[in-house]
Every structure is written in structure tokens, then in C-alpha cells.
């Protein structure tokens, strides 16, 4: 558990699972004696939101609590965008580099090399497409919805579009990106020939399992926090329309 008053330095030293969050919130290290709250303000991050996400991360397999619900969706969207950037610019290239090294191992047959490289190329495409769709359809939709939910009368055009698109459609089509990675780990552990370069294999597996864990956390956040919150807002906007 971390608290607002805690020194950010200590929060990080004691909980290194928090490290990936700093890139996503765009918080720079070099904390000195500053508290969690101070560091957040300096970096223009809502401290309550930061703490919710951070504590949700620390409690393994836990559901983020309901209090997340009253944060502006805007900060949630910003966080999701930063997470996407992290996947595309940091996590995925890191796995890719290791896979490339794996492909160069002399024990692998051409068939195995083709299988691995084809697999990873396609996976990358699916991954990017997934993120692209979220960035270009879902997140803008959410921001617009939040805008429409503010005091004034919602735009009638938006209301009628709600009948065609709502977050439940996204939910239905929302693929899980981690399954394929788990299959890749199994392939390496069980079906590829033993490799001399054991260290490389272990590195690949560790990297894959980190990414899987991260994707699960991320998807949980979307399924359990973002989607219910958005559906609630949809209902609210629709009912405002019915009012006098």
C-alpha cells in the first residue's frame, strides 16, 4: 500500500512493480525527499488517480476498487493512451529484439524459424490494430460521451448515434492480446529443441510473462473500471434526454 504522504522514493524502492507506471504517467525520477502527492502535482498528475492505479497494481489479481469510478474519464483516457504508447514503443520492441535473437540460434530448423517469425509478425500486426482501433474509435467516443454528459443538453445527434454504437459493442469485440503470447511461451518451453543459449530462452520467457501480466492488468482495468463507468455515463446521457 502506498499513501499520499509517503516519500515517493520509498514507495518505489519498496514496490518495484510500480516502475512501469512512471513512464505511463510521464513522471520523471529524481524524487529527492518529495512525497507521492508532491511528485504528482509537479508532474500534473491527479494524486488520487495515481494512487488508485498504483495500489491496484500492487494488490495482485485484485479488482481495482469502485472509487476509481469518480475520476474524470479524461484522466483515465490519458492513462490508457500512455499505456498504449508504452506497449508499442517499449514492451513490444523489447520482446521483438529477443525473438530476433532467438531466430538466429543454430539449433532451430528453417521450419521453426518460419513459424516463429511469421507468428510474431502477425501478432505485432494484430496488436497494433487492436491499439489503433482503441485510439481512433473507442477513446474519442469516450471523451465525447463525457463532454455530452456535462450540464447542457446533450447533442441530439450524439444521442441517436448512441443507438448504433455503445461501449458494449467494444466490449464484445474486445480481444484478449495475451492468449497468443502464452501460446508462444508454451511453444518455446515444450516444442522447440533445447538450445545451447539457455540464458536467451529464459530471458524471452521472462519478458513474455511480464508482458502477459501487464496485458492482463490492463485488460482488467478496461473491463472492470472503464467499461462499467462508460455504460453508466451512457445511461445518464440517455436519461437526460428524456427529461423535460
Amino acid at each position: 500500500m502506498i499513501s499520499r504522504e509517503m516519500a515517493m522514493c520509498r514507495a518505489v524502492l519498496e514496490n518495484n512493480r510500480l516502475l512501469p507506471l512512471f513512464a505511463r504517467f510521464n513522471i520523471r525520477l529524481g524524487f529527492g525527499e518529495k512525497s507521492v502527492e508532491e511528485v504528482c502535482w509537479i508532474n500534473e498528475v491527479d494524486p488520487d488517480f495515481f494512487m488508485e492505479i498504483a495500489n491496484a497494481y500492487l494488490e495482485e489479481d485484485d479488482i481495482p476498487r469502485e472509487d476509481l469510478a469518480h475520476f474524470p474519464l479524461k484522466s483515465m483516457v490519458k492513462y490508457l493512451r500512455a499505456t498504449h504508447t508504452y506497449y508499442l514503443e517499449v514492451a513490444l520492441p523489447r520482446v521483438e529484439l529477443l525473438i530476433t535473437q532467438l531466430l538466429n540460434q543454430p539449433e532451430l530448423s528453417q521450419k521453426e524459424v518460419n513459424l516463429l517469425s511469421g507468428f510474431f509478425d502477425d501478432y505485432k500486426k494484430e496488436f497494433m490494430q487492436h491499439i489503433f482501433q482503441e485510439e481512433n474509435e473507442v477513446l474519442p467516443y469516450i471523451l465525447e460521451l463525457e463532454k455530452q454528459s456535462l450540464p447542457d443538453q446533450p447533442d441530439p445527434e450524439f444521442i441517436s448515434s448512441l443507438k448504433v454504437y455503445s461501449i458494449s459493442k467494444f466490449e464484445q469485440e474486445h480481444d484478449r492480446l495475451e492468449y497468443s503470447l502464452e501460446n508462444l511461451s508454451r511453444l518455446i518451453i515444450k516444442y522447440l529443441p533445447p538450445l545451447e543459449n539457455q540464458e536467451l530462452c529464459l530471458k524471452v520467457l521472462a519478458e513474455l510473462s511480464d508482458l502477459v501480466k501487464d496485458l492482463v492488468d490492463h485488460a482488467n482495468m478496461e473491463d472492470r473500471v472503464l467499461i462499467p463507468r462508460v455504460s453508466e455515463l451512457e445511461q445518464q446521457v440517455l436519461s437526460e434526454k428524456k427529461g423535460p
Partner: peptide, 9 residues
């Protein structure tokens, strides 16, 4: 959650 041929393979 897998659509590509290589993923299915």
C-alpha cells in the same frame, strides 16, 4: 482471441 494463420498454427 487469435485470428491470424500463424497464430492458429
Amino acid at each position: 482471441g487469435i485470428k491470424s494463420v500463424s497464430g492458429l498454427t
